[in-house]
Design a protein around this nucleic acid. Structure first.
Length: 494
RNA sequence: GUCUCCUUCGUCUAGUGGUCAGGACAGCGGGUUUUCAUCCCGCCAGCAGGGGUUCGACUCCCCUAGGAGAUGCCA
């Protein structure tokens, strides 16, 4: 039988970096080995279930370009792939486990369990269920049934011996049964299964061969082995992936800023960058290669290069990858990616505005090397679309010059504007060099007042190209405005 | 409290008994350049500590320390 792996998220929140890392590794592992990648929805927590989370899951996988071989959307011969549609199976097997003596009904109230936990914590005792209902007498059970308490079903963890399993990454792991979580719940009082039960049953019936999941599952793995044994099934090959941490060294969470893929998409991260970067948390190829496309990963990924230790998610490096992939885009592709952002800032109304095409091409070319994320476009090109609110003389006047000299420079440029707009960029640059020399200032100092006048900032895209895009009218007006401001400045000080 | 896993530059990592411990991001410095950015060059920076094993340990073993995870009718 070929390799079959699954990504089995719970639709209780937005897909985050840790989740898709697991999805990606499963997907790449399947692809690289010619196996199948299955998507299964683990929606057994009815309290936290969210429709939006489910939509987000599908959207995210689509955005990443991950298509499952079998899934709720696509179907498959092992369906349903939604756990809430499989409840009968779980109930049936839970019942069988009780019958075979591997599980039992527990009538303890949640309230009682909570008190128990509190007491244990206070007394510094071992935590966990005290197995009170494991040894209930017939009459006690009858009594509880009479009270119509909705019981849960708990798994009987053996009181002696140990449970051993092999993890592909971590090797042989053994745990004394007494250290396994004491008798975890299999079937909740609402008749929905817990992760432990549903997961084991589904993986078995869906013929899952390898389980790649985060190491946070490691402690409960022996419990799953006990379950497999109780059911008389063979457990799949496990491989517990190193966790993804925030920069405080703890499990990545919202506290660290963006963790949801959706947020990254909104900021303007590309799937290429996310895939490339995320694949490198806990996995490497060799000592130097760091660029990988999805297609390459589908060939090159291997479990042998996994790391055992957790990895800190580095926003800076992601950003660097993103800038790289933005620069990899053709101008045409990048323009298309940028348009929604320009629309969102209301710089343009729609991508179909007549006469916009060339303008947008130019804007794209001017911005390409300056973008880390697509949303950076706003601060880069806003001056093409909006008037400048305020000028600060200290920005306009170069450090080594004074207001009078600056006025002179701007007047000089203004008088040559017709040349500027009729000649090629190279020629204009030559012209500026000549004029700067004549004025006795460096080219940089000569251009800076112009830059600030036209863009409102001393940091901007290349100025000559920007001028041409802005047009002679706006350019002239902005220069005049700044000259007037400087003249006021001079008279006020004089 | 208990159990489990982990430990190479700030971060991601290469390394599988003999290496000047390599690369990347970040940081810093320089070059190209009309600013910024890109690009190029350089610098800084690491084997958690202690015991063994060995002719020789980052690599193997043990202990300690530190970190993380689990300990839910959440996954």
């Amino acid at each position: 039988m070929g390799i079959r792996v699954r990504y089995a998220p719970s639709p209780t929140g937005l897909q985050h970096i840790g989740g898709i890392r697991t999805a990606l590794f499963n997907y790449f592992f399947a692809k690289s080995r010619g196996g199948e990648f299955i998507l299964r929805i683990e929606d057994t927590d009815r309290e936290r279930y969210s429709e939006a989370a489910l939509t987000d899951l599908y959207d995210t996988l689509k955005w990443l370009g991950i298509e499952a071989d079998e899934s709720p959307e696509k179907g498959g011969e092992y369906g349903s792939y939604v756990q809430s549609e499989r409840t009968e199976i779980y109930r049936e097997y839970a019942r069988r486990l009780v019958e075979s003596g591997h599980a039992y009904y527990c009538y303890c109230s949640q309230d009682r369990l909570e008190k128990l936990r509190e007491k244990q914590k206070k007394d510094k005792q071992d935590f966990g269920y005290n197995r009170r209902c494991r040894t209930l007498s017939e009459s006690e059970i009858e009594e509880y049934q009479q009270e119509s308490i909705k019981p849960v079903i708990r798994l009987k963890i053996p009181l002696e011996g140990e449970t051993v399993f092999n993890d592909y990454l971590l090797g042989e792991i053994s745990k004394k049964n007494i250290d396994i979580s004491p008798d975890p719940v299999l079937l909740k009082s609402d008749k929905y299964p817990t992760y432990h039960l549903a997961n084991v049953i589904d993986d078995h019936f869906m013929n899952i061969t390898h389980i790649l999941r985060a190491q946070e599952w490691l402690p409960s793995c022996p419990l799953h082995i006990v379950l497999y044994n109780a059911l008389g099934w063979k457990a799949p090959q496990y491989c517990h992936l190193p966790m993804v941490m925030g920069d405080n060294g703890q499990k990545l969470s919202k506290r660290h800023g963006a963790t949801a893929v959706k947020e990254f998409i909104e900021q303007g991260y590309l799937p290429e960058a996310i895939i490339n970067y995320v694949s490198l948390i806990g996995w490497s190829y060799d000592d130097s290669r760091e660029f990988f496309t999805k297609q390459e990963l589908e060939k090159l990924f291997t479990l042998d290069k996994l790391s055992k230790s957790p990895g800190v998610f580095d926003y800076k490096k992601l950003e660097w990858f993103n800038g790289h992939y933005i620069r990899q885009k053709s101008n045409e592709e990048l323009k298309e990616l940028l348009i929604p952002y320009l629309v969102k800032c209301e710089f343009i109304e729609s991508e179909t505005m007549p006469g916009m095409t060339t303008f947008l091409d130019e804007i794209t070319a001017l911005s390409k090397e300056r973008l880390k994320v697509l949303s950076d476009i706003k601060d880069l090109v806003w001056f093409f679309f909006r008037e400048i609110d305020t000028y600060f003389p200290e920005d306009i006047i170069p450090k080594k010059l004074d207001a009078a000299k600056t006025i002179e420079i701007l007047e000089t440029i203004k008088s040559h504007l017709s040349d500027v707009f009729s000649k090629s960029e190279d020629k204009v640059e030559e012209l500026f060099k000549t004029l700067a020399e004549a004025a006795g200032v460096t080219l940089g100092n000569f251009i800076m007042p112009l830059r600030v006048a036209v863009t409102g900032s001393n940091v901007s895209p290349p100025i000559i190209g920007s001028l041409k895009l802005l047009g002679i009218e706006k350019t002239t007006a902005r220069i005049e405005r700044v000259v007037n401001i400087l003249k006021d400045e001079v008279s006020n000080n004089g």
